[in-house]
Design a protein around this nucleic acid. Sequence first.
DNA 1: ATGGCTTTATGCTAAAGA
Length: 259
Amino acid sequence: MSKILKLASWNVNSVKARGEHVQKYCADFAPDILMMQELKGETFPSEDFKAIGYHSVAATQKAYNGVAILSKNEIELIHDRLPGMEDDDQARYLEANISGIRVINIYLPNGNPVDTDKFPYKLRWMDALIERAKILRAQHIPFLIAGDFNIIPEDKDCHDPSAWRGDALFHEESLAKWRSLLNIGLYDAYRIVDGSDEVYSFWDYQRGAWQKNDGIRIDHFLLSPQLADQMIACEIHKEPRGWDRPSDHTPIALSLKLD
DNA sequence: ATGGCTTTATGCTAAAGA
């Protein structure tokens, strides 16, 4: 009898400001694992999630960044910073074993403006992620990388490609690193089933972007080959973006068949 | 007129997000 594991990833844009939304999402969708990014606070409200049946691990810092994993099953923390970026003081990486799977939650640097140090930092971070993924592939560990990648993979992943040319999210150098990551043998879960076009995961708060569906797909699940075989579904849950005082991102969800 | 956000913080302006 096989079991289904439901995972989701969501950039919440402050876990403090979005506490009720996260609780509602957990009640509605009941993910076994929820990965969150942009917690934006030094403390993580683990007790609030324990009260609804979730273990949690978090990497936090004051005001910026921050990532957390919630799980109904036990979590074995492996790394709370990206190997190869030991000097990085930004909270952007968690790696853990859950239910026999290596789960990696990332908040990949934005990289804008591209004429500042922020862009090379993004590229360096991606290089380290590629190296980490190569090691896990070589060890034949079934793993997935989920989170806010701050990468628009292709033209069809944004409403208006011309508006994003040269941006760090759509820059040739960023996309080259993205392709290197895929070429290790990872699969963009949303495209395994060739998910619908004009479905995005982020809409800017400004210029009526949500109302016009002027969005971008930058939140992703990358799967190692074995997990790609076990995938049942991958979909973007648009509803939370329409809630009152929402995050500017909406969750992406993945269902896996476990042996 | 049209579209002028949202969050955090040694706070009342600035920085960051994307």
